[in-house]
Design a protein around this nucleic acid. Structure first.
Length: 661
DNA sequence: ATAGGGTTAG
């Protein structure tokens, strides 16, 4: 650069021409370059001393530039300099300085500016009022903003909307909606921003009724097709779990942007419709909408839940191609996708290569190791986080580390971490119960449940039941199942548990009675199925399924394996279904279970020694678990089986879960 | 000036 920046800046100020737009633009440009270059105000102060800077307009520009650079602290210093030099602030100065006070979190300073506004006679200016409302609303509560609003001489749609937004922000969506309806009743102008704010509040409240009312207002204003309004409606209907309404809004939109597409993809995913989410994500690409970090972060959880690796890898490919893989949220989502798709090594590698990690990164990896049976490693990772980072454990991380303690059966550590949680939630309590029951400390578990008053939570009872299953504690198991039936009388799963419990002690009349009850109540127990992805195609199997084209070969392979298991490994089936909750499976041992069919198909469809990955919708049964261990040894392969509880890595005759699941 | 889309929660 030929002329130093500071000199150029000085020339600009000394120029005698009247202030005009272009000079102002130039000033802004220089100011940005200066602040980027110097990074501190020392240089600027020096210039203040050198330059006869007396017009308010120039100071306002300086303030605006710093504000748009996110330098709110500097704005306050500049404003102080301005006053020191006797320059009179005007109605353009004050809103900006108020904004800076808000952004700096400085209520004290904001109040001072308020005083100055009163003294200088700007307190009735619309812009000053909204800036004051925003400052007080953020730093002192929405009520203070309401107080100002009630006393302001003129209200406009901006101040109304601001007030409603403040209520939503402070988790008072009902008041936000109330404010909006007042606005309508008083015939204030309803613009798209006001509608978007009110619709957002309905979503936060999860009130479909309120949402529909605001939707009706939008219709009357003729603004339903507005992009901002439609996008807000879309999100609101998903937040209220009304997929059909959301879809209707989406379908009638005349044009859609990346936000619309992201909202609908995420909406389907959050409502459990993973395949539909993925389908829409593909459609978004076909439509030529550019992918960004937000849209891929919305679809990745769908890939994770479907746990068919091909989808996740495909999206990961897009991410790399579109150069959005440096975003932390995206990295976390990709990592989680690999964890949930069975590729723990891929996740671990990504984690190791991260330049920056946040609480989510640690949570994903700690839970990831735990889900894959590596509880000790997960606890170690938690220690590393505490040792080497400033990340403070939150609710999620505690869930992950408690889960890890369960996996590793580290009961001392589990108790210790539980006591570290400031306000433990039911999830945390249930995990501690799981841990205590898993190491056989049923008395301690009982006392813990009583002390915390959590006996009426099904997740707690199920945690207890897991322990009963492991230790064959049928007496307590029966009590727990009775309790579960009381808590959820319409959940078929509980009666299946009961039926299997009676079957285990050969009380066939009771079995029949429970079955009749299930029938009479019209309940439908979940059917078990397993699936496996082979060459980009998903193959699903039910219990005793013979519908697969290669069915004969699948069963033949299983017969051979069973024979080898008996001859070479001396394995005998032991039908342990006492506390198992799959109805139909009891009758289909030894080889008809869905996971065995999927394993067999996996073995005959892949090259020798290749790892196979199977997913099952219900928990793997004891028998199949034993069989899979031995099969992994016979065929010398790693078999990964994902069930709703964890990933089982069967290898060399043992399972990563160490038979606790 | 006010506003619409993202990751973890066995």
């Amino acid at each position: 650069m030929a002329v130093p920046l500071s000199l150029q800046f000085q020339c600009l100020f000394q120029c005698q021409k009247p202030i005009n737009r272009s000079r102002n633009k130039q000033l802004e440009k220089f100011q940005i370059r200066l602040s980027m270059k110097s990074g501190d105000l020392a240089l600027t102060y020096q210039m203040f001393d050198e330059i006869p800077l007396s017009d308010t307009f120039a100071w306002n520009t300086l303030i605006r530039t710093h504000l748009s650079n996110g330098d709110s602290d500097h704005v306050i210093s500049i404003y102080q300099q301005m006053l020191l030099r006797g320059v009179r602030p005007d109605k353009h100065t004050l809103p900006r300085v108020l904004t800076a006070s808000r952004l700096s979190g400085c209520l004290f300073y904001g109040r001072q500016i308020h005083g100055q506004a009163l003294k200088l006679g700007f307190s009735h200016d619309g812009y000053v009022i909204t800036a004051l409302m925003s400052m007080y609303g953020h730093l002192d509560g929405a009520e203070t903003a309401q107080w100002l609003f009630d006393r302001s001489p003129r209200r406009n749609s901006v101040s109304w909307t601001l007030l409603a937004g403040l209520y939503t922000m402070q988790d008072k969506p009902s008041l936000a909606i109330h404010t909006f309806h007042q606005m309508v009743d008083l015939n204030a102008e309803i613009d798209p921003v006001a509608l978007a704010t009110a619709i957002g509040a309905c979503g936060r409240l999860k009130s479909l009724l309120e949402g529909r009312k605001v939707h009706e207002v939008a219709r009357k204003c003729g603004l339903v097709l507005d992009l901002l309004v439609s996008n807000s409606l879309l999100k609101m209907y998903f937040d209220c779990s009304s997929i059909n309404d959301a879809r209707a809004v989406f379908d009638q939109m005349p044009s859609r942007d990346a936000i619309s597409w992201t909202a609908i993809v995420r909406g389907y995913v959050k409502n459990g419709e993973f395949n539909e989410g993925l389908k829409l994500f593909r459609l978004m690409n076909v439509e030529g909408v550019k992918l960004d970090s937000l849209s891929v972060s919305s679809v990745l959880p769908a890939c994770a839940r479907i746990s068919a690796c091909k989808n996740g890898k495909e999206v990961h490919g897009y991410i790399i191609k579109n150069l959005i893989n440096s975003n932390l949220t995206v990295q976390n989502a990709v990592m989680d996708m690999y964890v949930k798709s069975g590729c723990i090594e891929a996740a671990s590698k990504l984690f190791a290569g991260m330049r920056e990690r946040d609480d989510v990164s640690w949570t994903v990896m700690i839970l990831g190791y735990s889900l894959h049976g590596q509880g000790e490693l997960a606890v170690e990772l938690f220690h590393e986080m505490e040792r080497s980072t400033s990340t403070k454990p939150n609710q999620f991380i505690y869930v992950a580390v408690l889960h890890a303690c369960c996996t590793a059966r580290m009961v001392h550590e589990g108790r210790f971490y539980f006591n570290c949680i400031r306000e433990p939630k039911v999830e945390h309590c249930a995990l501690l119960v799981t841990l205590l029951a898993r190491v056989g400390l049923f008395d301690e578990a009982r006392i813990f449940i009583e002390e915390h008053g959590i006996e009426r939570h099904t997740e707690v009872q199920k945690a207890l039941l897991d322990g009963c299953r492991i230790y064959h504690n049928t007496k307590l198991g029966k009590r727990v199942i009775d309790q579960l039936c009381n808590l959820e009388p319409l959940n078929a799963e509980n009666y299946v548990l009961l039926s299997n419990l009676y079957a285990a002690s050969a009380k066939w009349d009771m079995v029949n009675r429970v079955r009749a009850t299930i029938q009479d109540m019209g309940l439908r127990p979940k059917r078990a199925h397993s699936w496996i992805e082979i060459r980009n195609k998903v193959h699903a199997f039910g219990v005793g399924d013979v519908s697969h084209p290669r069915s004969e070969r699948i069963y033949w392979e299983l017969q051979c394996l069973m024979k080898k298991m008996e001859e070479e490994e001396g394995y005998v089936h032991d039908a342990d279904f006492g506390l198992h909750n799959v109805d139909e499976e009891r009758e289909c041992i030894p080889i008809g279970h869905s996971e065995m069919l999927a394993i067999s198909f996996g073995l005959i469809s892949t090259p020798p020694r290749a790892t196979i990955l199977i997913t099952k919708n219900l928990r793997v049964c004891h028998n199949c678990h034993e069989s899979a261990k031995i099969i992994s040894k016979i065929v010398e392969r790693e078999i990964i089986l994902k069930d709703p509880n964890c990933f089982h890595h069967f290898k060399d005759g043992i399972c990563s879960c160490r038979d606790f699941w």
